[in-house]
Design a binder for these strands. Sequence first.
DNA 1: GTAAGTACCTTGCTATGCAAGATACTGTGT
DNA 2: ACACAGTATCTTGCATAGCAAGGTACTTAC
Lengths: 108, 108
Amino acid sequence: MNIQFKKGILEICVLAVLAQKDCYGYELVSEISKRIDISEGTIYPLLHRLKDVGHVTTYLQESAGGPPRKYYRLTESGRKEEHEQKEEWMRFAASVNALLEGKNDAAE
Amino acid sequence: MNIQFKKGILEICVLAVLAQKDCYGYELVSEISKRIDISEGTIYPLLHRLKDVGHVTTYLQESAGGPPRKYYRLTESGRKEEHEQKEEWMRFAASVNALLEGKNDAAE
DNA sequence: GTAAGTACCTTGCTATGCAAGATACTGTGT
DNA sequence: ACACAGTATCTTGCATAGCAAGGTACTTAC
């Protein structure tokens, strides 16, 4: 898969999954990977960025077998951001599809 | 518009427009800009990349008012690339949409 | 003569994803 | 006891592609 396509998109994917339930990083990788490849080297910096700007908060929780998990929860601004980015993606995808279909007139 | 979204996509857009007709750089900017913002600082390096890998050839043509225009024409490999990247984009967009809609099961 | 439009180009910056590696805990097999 | 796989976190250095800002040069209009 073209790596470039994912630029900016993985952030929406993370926000969208977190909008449904709190997740820890490793879990997000496996959830998103069902549809789109994402590596751990991507998710952790991304989650830290989201925390830095206040779109998520974190809490630690023990796990049965393995180290403790750091869960991420969307904040209000995170939910707003998820909504806005989703809309922007929809508009963008529609524009690309129109262009690829040769509807270059911008009227359609 | 989120700049990151465009990464890799503008190349498909250029290929798609060139699949319909030969264009010069400045013309491509205005064609694509009807749907998606693209700057000249993006298009010229992109066109040079496409030429380097053999997806396009060029020819010069006089213009009425202004400097001569450098037209770009798709090669066979360019047409093939256009087709493949279009398909990849469709698959990618479908995956993203599924994820954003919460269809995390990969079965649907 | 100067501004705006056309048309080409380059340099330096930024953002994001990835591979590869480090760390550390648990459970299983030998 | 020891090694290995799985879980779970993280960091460093690299590659890529888009953009802003600038430069060049030609033509037409004021």
